[in-house]
Computed example of a mutant assay.
Amino acid sequence: MDDKKEKLARFGIATKGFVYCLIGVLTTMAAIGMGGKATGSSGALESIAGGTFGKILLGITVVGLLGYIFWRMIQAFEDPENKGSDFKGIARRTGYFFSGLFYGFLAFTAMEILMGSQSGGGSGSNETIVAKLLNQSFGQYLVGGLALVFFGKAIYQWYRAFSDKFKSKVKESGLDQKARDLLINSGKIGYISRGVVIAIIGYMTLRAAITASSSQAGSTKEAFHFIQNEFGTFLLILIAVGLFAYGVFMFVKARYRRMVSV
């Protein structure tokens, strides 16, 4: 990968970290009554636009999101990390593709907010997707399948948190002990928190499949409300701090991860 492409990819990874840090900060502030709001990615983008120099910062964020999409598509199609073409490799690369697709929708949302045609917030893209699926033949089964995808992703996040492979990659990065400890600890906390949020989104999606009602589904924002209503504010704060830690993890990855040439 040439220098310009590598810088764009690193900037993209850092931008993902920035969005997660913002989600963590806004949700923590809302939970402790200091303003803010329990929100997902779209709401975080809206909050950027409303701040000082908001349009400029949001424009920079759009560029960063495009950089992250660029990196995910390289991982999916050019396979610089040699994931391979067996079942496991194809599954990983397909995951990279859909991750890039998700951040493509997020970048599009950011551009809509930037141009003033979208106010952010809303009911969440997951509810919209569920509503469309329920209108299809065997819609409830399709939504049930989507719920299983979320559950699988949640389990994978928890696996990453405790995986020796994750720790060994950090140890092989050539970082000093302090940086390695920061990367491992922030990554572990972040993966656990992401897994919890994704599992709850999966539960809400399964609930929508059983009831055949898209209003029962939800995205990150609704998952935060569910955590607070069912388990209390303290757990919501822990999850929000965990997502902030994941953002820190992405910042460190952006700086230190090895970019394999393609």
Rank of each mutant, 00 (worst) to 15 (best):
1 M>I: 11
1 M>Q: 08
4 K>W: 12
5 K>G: 14
15 T>H: 03
15 T>K: 03
16 K>M: 08
16 K>W: 00
20 Y>T: 01
22 L>G: 07
23 I>H: 03
23 I>T: 05
27 T>L: 05
29 M>L: 15
33 G>N: 12
35 G>C: 11
36 G>H: 04
41 S>A: 15
45 L>C: 07
48 I>D: 05
52 T>L: 14
60 I>V: 15
62 V>S: 03
64 G>Q: 05
65 L>K: 03
65 L>R: 05
69 I>L: 07
76 A>S: 15
76 A>R: 01
78 E>M: 09
78 E>C: 10
83 K>D: 13
87 F>Y: 13
88 K>T: 11
91 A>C: 07
94 T>H: 05
94 T>S: 11
97 F>D: 06
97 F>P: 04
99 S>D: 15
102 F>W: 14
112 E>R: 14
113 I>T: 02
116 G>I: 05
116 G>Y: 00
118 Q>L: 13
118 Q>C: 01
119 S>A: 15
120 G>Y: 05
121 G>H: 08
121 G>V: 07
121 G>F: 03
124 G>P: 02
138 F>A: 13
140 Q>I: 11
142 L>M: 11
148 L>D: 00
150 F>C: 10
158 W>Y: 02
159 Y>H: 14
162 F>D: 03
167 K>Y: 13
170 V>G: 09
173 S>Y: 10
178 K>C: 04
182 L>W: 05
187 G>A: 13
188 K>T: 15
188 K>C: 08
194 R>S: 12
199 A>E: 05
203 Y>T: 07
207 R>K: 13
222 E>R: 09
223 A>E: 02
223 A>P: 01
226 F>Q: 02
227 I>W: 03
229 N>M: 09
232 G>L: 05
235 L>G: 06
236 L>V: 04
237 I>E: 01
239 I>S: 02
240 A>Y: 01
241 V>Q: 01
247 G>N: 09
247 G>D: 10
250 M>W: 11
250 M>P: 00
251 F>E: 02
251 F>V: 04
254 A>P: 02
255 R>G: 00
255 R>W: 06
262 V>T: 12
